[in-house]
Design a protein around this nucleic acid. Structure first.
Lengths: 122, 122
DNA sequence: TGTTAAATTAATATTGATTATCAGTTTCGA
DNA sequence: TCGAAACTGATAATCAATATTAATTTAACA
């Protein structure tokens, strides 16, 4: 599908790029409303999908069921504080797994690895 | 809360223990209905919680939002086929991360690590 | 064994997040 | 500028999970 330029989509993208933390759908809805007061929730969901397809933003669904969005930065993993809820990133080399070991042993072609680490940071 | 013996709870536990794969809530509801045709969905959810508290079963919420149950075996990780949906387990040493590295660098006390690996097995 | 309070049940209403539908509006290339 | 495709906001529909409630079952104990 070809994209048209839409003010609402730009607003949503800006909200996510300007945020210094992971945002929920509600966070995005609230922030977008300040720019476009008449924006509807359906427009939020629709554009989050489109922006994700275009690799402009990235969706993270933690295993507690909550969904967060952040600007696209490629594959990485999350560390979530179970007390204050703060979400930070975990990168190599702290996190390491033998992809080829798993591929060989299980006869699979791995295409995505998703890890969430829970702990207390405060 | 003290537990009473309940036929329904035993049925649900048996369903999960007898299954040779990860079950969704609907799978469990359907299977339990064969034993106790009058069982309600609320009873399923309530007992899944209780059985999980008692460490008799284990809940896995994949990052696509789907929830699965299996008999309790302690911490482990999952490999999901994106084609056939088959779920298998991934164990050390194929999967390894430096818990203390992450703890020191981020000043956290880690209490849970959840990883889902996606690939094609067929 | 009979009584009784606590635990459990099935049915149903409610919630919360997300998706589908739809009629009207906007965008943009020919 | 015209028209098809993309997009919008409102709202209905869906889906998983939780809360409520009145009736039933369990098990401790008199």
């Amino acid at each position: 599908m070809n994209r048209n330029f839409s003010k609402q989509r730009e607003t949503i993208l800006k909200v996510i790029k300007d945020a210094e933390k992971h945002l929920t759908t509600d966070d995005i809805f609230a922030a977008a409303k300040k720019q476009s007061p008449s924006i509807g929730i359906a427009t939020i969901y629709r554009n989050l999908q489109l922006l994700e397809e275009d690799k402009q933003i990235q969706k993270t669904q933690l295993d507690n069921g909550k969904t967060y969005y952040e600007p696209y930065i490629g594959p990485h993993h999350h560390l979530v504080c179970t007390k204050c809820g703060k979400i930070t990133h975990v990168t190599e080399p702290d996190f390491k797994l033998c992809v080829t070991c798993i591929e060989n042993k299980n006869q699979v072609k791995i295409n995505k690895i998703s890890t969430t680490i829970y702990g207390e940071c405060c």
